[in-house]
Design a protein around this nucleic acid. Structure first.
Lengths: 194, 194
DNA sequence: GTCTATAGGCAGATAGAC
DNA sequence: GTCTATCTGCCTATAGAC
């Protein structure tokens, strides 16, 4: 990701924003030109085809998200706090009218090159692995019910974030996602059955 | 929906399939022409603009889905069976490589006319209301935990279906959605805490 | 590395014959 | 109701000057 220069990063920044707003199929190199301020031919210099752009987009996002998760671990010692911090990232994205980058790319799946598809799968697995770790920590801290299936619940949390975000955005209301996540957290949290 | 003739329905059939596979932005009138077997000008005769097409698509889908839910109620007396039957519809769709029609339209939200957006919201609310009814029935039948928030859990179920479907499709594996739904059903089902 | 210029094709949409 | 023919503009992508 650091082998890219400032122009390439700026192109990816705009492409990322347009993807999250409209979807990968719904913006053109011309739209990037208008926002980035360089000609489409310059964009093709960095990303010869749109499929190259898709791959770089998902690659950079995966790296950055890994850093974000590490940062949350550094600032939150409690498992519940970590999961809520992740949820807040999704809620903040929603409040900008945007959908999850990888959720959007997943909806545009058939337009992506195979390699981007693989990176997308890795991204989801990466977040689930982080969630599973947080759930185990929560059990040790006595805040997460000990009877739950860790792997299944990690997948459930991610699915709820993605699906809740999708529906919340349709309703134009980020509170929907908050409510859904609170409902789930109450059901897996210890307070629920005690 | 019945004011449409056979050609119009066939156009909607193909448009629906292409939407679920590629997204609403990712197919053209030309693509419809090739599959339906009538010229693009004929398609414009029925659906003057693509936004008209989007609206009709979501309208017909809402009507049909309401019929589907009523049918499930007719064939299943147990609440758990009803919810599982709905989940099976999503799983079957996935096994055809398709995403949920309304989930896909929600991802293409900014390309839709305002009226289609409203219909989309109604669709999600319709399914949630049905799920809430099933949850109440499940409580009466002693199969759903009595302490849950009905409205919140109905939203949680729908979010899990949509998000689980999105991620399962990226993984090319409908078993992912099954696993996620089973995990959730175990947590809200009575067997879990008894 | 960024530009101008342009290719070749497809997009959504319309006019008018039958 | 369906067709042929066509418009205008945008799409991805490339060639070649600077």
């Amino acid at each position: 990701m650091n082998e890219l220069n400032a122009t390439a990063h700026k192109i990816l920044d705009v492409a990322e924003r347009l993807t999250q707003l409209h979807g990968f199929n719904a913006f053109s190199y011309k739209a990037l030109q208008d926002e980035v301020g360089v000609k489409t031919s310059t964009i093709h210099y960095y990303f010869p085809t749109k499929q190259d752009l898709a791959l770089r987009l998902v690659e950079r996002h995966g790296v950055r998200f890994a850093e974000l998760l590490k940062q949350i671990d550094g600032t939150h010692t409690e498992a519940i706090g970590r999961i809520n911090a992740l949820a807040q990232v999704y809620i903040d994205t929603l409040s900008q009218g945007k959908f999850c980058m990888c959720g959007m790319l997943a909806s545009d799946l058939l337009a992506l090159p195979e390699q981007a598809n693989l990176r997308l799968q890795e991204f989801f697995q990466q977040v689930e692995a982080w969630l599973a770790k947080a759930l185990v920590l929560g059990q040790e801290q006595g805040r997460i019910h000990s009877g739950i299936d860790i792997e299944g619940t990690a997948s459930l949390l991610l699915s709820t974030l993605e699906g809740g975000m999708l529906i919340a955005r349709a309703h134009g209301c980020s509170a929907y996602l908050e409510r859904v996540m609170n409902t789930l957290m109450q059901q897996i949290g210890k307070a629920y059955t005690e």
